[in-house]
Computed example of a mutant assay.
Amino acid sequence: MTLHFVLPGNIDRQTGGTIYDRRVVEGLRARGMAVEVHELPDRFPTPDAADLKAADDLLASLPDGALVVVDGLAFGAMPEAATAHAGRLRLVALVHHPLALETGLSAAAAARLRTSETVALKAARHVIVTSPATRDSLVRDFGVPADACTVVVPGTDRAEAAPGCGEGTEGPALLSVGSLIPRKGHDVLIEALAPLAGRPWHLTIAGPGEHDPATAQALRDLIAARGLDDRVTLTGALPPERLDRAYAAANVFVLASHYEGFGMVLTEALARGLPIVSTTGGAIPDTVPEGAGLLVPPADAVALGQALARVMDDAALRRRLRESALAARDALPDWTATADRFAAALEVSP
C-alpha cells in the first residue's frame, strides 16, 4: 500500500516541521514503504479559497481506503475537506504544535484556529505528535482521545562535540536557530542582551526571514535601535553544511521561544555538547534534560538576560552544562528510530 504524505509548501524547506516531514519520508522509504509526497500551497495555515479547493481536490483524487498523513500546519486549517473525506480515507494528522498557540495571533484568529483544528482532528483516524507536551495539549484542549494519539519524537543526527565550547576559548559565541517569526522570541533575546553589551559576546541568529517579512524587519530595527549591529549577525537560512559550522563555532546555544512543540534545534545543540539557555515554553522542558540548560519563563527578557549573564561569567557552570549535554546526547533517538516508531504508529491506525 502506498502512503500519501501531504504537506504545505516544498518538502525541501529548511523549517523544523518540514525537516521532520522530509526525514520521516526518507526513513519510511528506506524501510521499503512506498511514499508519495503531495505539496499543497504554502499559505497554510491561512489558506485562501483556492488553497482549500486544492486541498479538497487532492483528497478527492486519492483512492478509497488510502492511508494519508497530513501535516498539521495544513490539516488543522482544512476541516471541511478533512470531514468530507474522512469516511473513505484513512486520515492521520501529524501535529507539530497546535495552530492556535502560534505567537502573535489576535484573540479572534486564535479562537478561529482552535475551532478549526478541533473539527479537523475529529476526522483523523489517528494523530501523531512530536512531543508528550503536544499530546497532552491535544487530549486536554482539543478532544483527541488519548489512545488515538502517538508520540514520535524527532531524530537527531550524530555530531562531533562543538570545539568552541571547550575551556580556553574566546567568547561566548552565542547561536540561535529559528525562523524570524514572533514565536521564536528573537526580539526578547535582543532585549535580554542589550544590558550585557559590556561583555565580549557575539550572537548569530540563523533562520529564514521570508516567512514573516514584517517581523524580520522589526528585528533588524530593534538590533539597530539597541546599538547591537556589530554584535548580532542575521545569516538567513543556512544550508546544512554551513549550519554545522555555525554550531561548531558556538559556545552557547540560546532559544528564546514563547512556545515549541518539541524544539529540534535544542537536540541538535545537545548533540554537539553545547550549553543551552532557553525558556519553559511548551515542550522545551521535556526536550532539554535537567542540568544541560538554564530555562526561564517565556517573554521574560530580564530573566533571560540574567541566565545569559550567569553562563557568560561562570566558566565552571558552562563546563557543567556541557558535561550534562554530552551525557544526554547518547540517549537521543536517531532518524531511523523515529521512522520505525512512525511506521508503528501507522500500523495501529484503523
Rank of each mutant, 00 (worst) to 15 (best):
A93W: 01
E290V: 10
E290P: 00
A100Q: 07
I19M: 02
E102G: 05
G32Y: 14
L295A: 03
M78T: 13
A162F: 12
Q217W: 00
T130S: 09
R29L: 12
E80Y: 07
A194E: 15
D334K: 05
A194R: 05
F142Q: 02
F75W: 07
A250P: 14
G227W: 02
L94M: 13
H258N: 14
L180V: 09
M264N: 11
A331T: 13
L238F: 06
D12W: 06
V296F: 02
G236V: 08
A331L: 05
R135W: 05
R140F: 01
A197K: 09
A271P: 00
L222R: 12
V129N: 05
G87D: 15
R112C: 00
R310W: 08
S61L: 11
A256D: 06
S137Y: 08
P275E: 09
V252T: 12
L105H: 03
E268C: 05
L295C: 00
E117G: 09
D12Y: 09
E167Q: 09
V25P: 06
E102A: 13
L255W: 02
L317R: 01
M264G: 04
P298C: 06
A224Y: 00
P195L: 14
A248N: 13
G65C: 11
V127R: 01
A86G: 10
L321I: 07
G227M: 01
A49H: 04
P182V: 12
R23Y: 03
V95S: 04
P239C: 03
L321H: 06
L196I: 08
R88T: 09
L174M: 07
A225R: 03
T169L: 04
P145K: 11
V119Y: 00
H202F: 11
A269P: 06
V311K: 04
A197Q: 10
E191V: 03
Q306K: 01
H186S: 08
G236E: 11
R135A: 15
A54R: 07
L91K: 08
E80S: 11
